[in-house]
Design a protein around this nucleic acid. Structure first.
Lengths: 293, 293
DNA sequence: CGCAGGACATAAGCTGAGGTGATGGCATGG
DNA sequence: CCATGCCATCACCTCAGCTTATGTCCTGCG
């Protein structure tokens, strides 16, 4: 049906009446009289050539067809209402729920948050940190930053952020004992749930991989804490720990690093991005720009 | 924004004007005068407290905010238009695009299509056969019937249809030569891309699996054709070939069968099902009902 | 330049879609 | 069997949203 023929007021009246289960209550919600609702819906039914309600003594009951129509309208009116709410008080302000893998949040995003807020006054960013296992739809997020390989989420849209090559990091005290990669054999090598990463690094360093023991953690931040406390050497994305490296709480014994994926900004396919989503994406990509693979 | 305050006519005028890039053309589409469009949009801008267009000499340009608003409205009005189109001519008629894995289509669905059409005059079913590799969103389908295990499509909703245990089928001529499972060793065993299925069947039959040679095909229908033509023995869901078994073009030498998954009706999460989707689902589930696992 | 043409804005007045208010019919329930 | 609570209907009213007419501004062209 083309735009000029859409009976928008009738559809609105129907949506409310179906939701309320009563013309009288619908009239209250719409701030009109019961007669107005009755007439609107009758006109709509005439136009469509179908009854939308069964007028039973026990109240209104949607017909099959009414039941088919109703959720579509509810969704669409809701969505329009939401988008208009962003204009509250003459200012445009949109809330954006962003899932962020903890390492990236602490190592990259949070230090830049203030700059973001300053340049994007129309966006209320709400961060939800996670450990790379996250369901955007279930958590009610608009977008999520995760680490890995985009083939892992074939059903999501994804834009590449910075690469995160891994290199051993340790407490500064350990530096003197780590002159060359084989020296690592004497240390506790801390592991993440990502298998083979140490093997890969030793291969890149041209050294045989010592047997791996010790704890396995699912969080780079926790690994970094352990390493900083002198409890071992962790294979971490150095770029995410620049602050600690600068402050001297962590040290990097070797230049060798291995590619292990990158951070990605992901979001659900299908829905076109909102203004805030587009701006956050542009800002993140710009911040990650110039970064070699 | 609550229902009574939604400026529906203003939003419609804005949507058309933004799409047309001109108030004048929008007025033509809406079958009103240019002045009416101008006023509607001005009222909307006043209400929101923001300009939605930059009135440049080279025509209208959407502001950032206008650009954020527009696609939401386009989608919503389009969707409402679509749902109203189903009422064309006083009758409710909805088109449903259904992907169907070929085996199920020929072995189950197509024989029952006439009954479906008779009991569901309001649904135009359009079938798209596929070989179990199908992207619902990309193909523009509402639902798809596929074979396998629901964990293979974690991002889809899925309802179980009938189970499809596999058993060897062959040309009737071969029956005398197949008295017991070990006799199969002398035959060409036709394979699908699904590995290990013959090994599983021989295990269930308590016989050692002979070495497998011969062609591999990705279609049960093609396997059945080959078997019927006497080119070998295929491991197939007997339920899908009941017609051929009855007609004597295929024969089933052994009772032994193995569970190998079932057919599933799948659809995208998130969007609530339309009336036709609900009815098709109910009909399929009813048809598959009483079927043991 | 100056003028025609085409765009959007504005003003004033009109009109019918959509509202009000009153009433009626028809259930339910104490 | 009356009170109550629905929805339907009717007659009438009113103002949102339209039309018509005109204004302003910019562009392109001879």
């Amino acid at each position: 049906m083309d735009r000029p023929n859409l009976p928008l007021n009738g559809l609105r009246a129907f949506e409310v009446a179906a939701r309320q289960g009563s013309f009288t209550r619908a009239a209250i919600e719409l701030r009109v009289t019961q007669a107005a609702v009755s007439q609107q819906i009758q006109r709509l039914e005439d136009l469509l050539g179908h009854r939308l309600f069964t007028r039973a003594s026990a109240g209104l009951i949607l017909t099959d067809i009414g039941a088919a129509l109703h959720p579509v309208l509810t969704r669409n009116f809701d969505e329009m209402g939401e988008v208009l709410d962003r204009f509250h008080g003459g200012r445009y302000r949109e809330t954006l729920n962003l899932g962020v893998v903890t390492t990236f949040a602490t190592g990259w995003l949070i230090p830049r948050l203030e700059a973001f807020e300053a340049t994007h006054p129309g966006i209320s960013l709400r961060l939800f940190t996670h450990n790379n296992r996250i369901d955007i739809a279930k958590e009610g997020l608009h977008m999520a930053i995760r680490f890995g390989d985009r083939t892992a989420w074939p059903w999501l849209e994804a834009a590449p952020l910075i690469a995160a090559p891994l290199t051993p990091l340790c407490a500064p005290d350990l530096l003197p004992h780590l002159q060359a990669p084989p020296d690592l054999a004497g240390q506790r090598l801390l592991r993440s749930y990502r298998v083979d990463e140490w093997a890969g690094w030793f291969a890149a360093a041209g050294t045989e991989c010592p047997p791996l023991e010790g704890p396995v953690l699912d969080s780079s931040v926790a690994l970094a804490e352990l390493a900083a406390a002198g409890h071992g050497v962790a294979l971490l994305p150095a770029a995410m720990f620049a602050r600690q490296l600068q402050a001297g709480t962590l040290a990097r014994p070797f230049a060798t690093e291995i590619a292990a994926g990158r951070y990605w900004l992901t979001w659900l396919r299908g829905k076109p991005p909102t203004l805030a989503m587009a701006q956050v994406r542009a800002w993140l990509l710009e911040g990650a720009g110039g970064q070699p693979d």
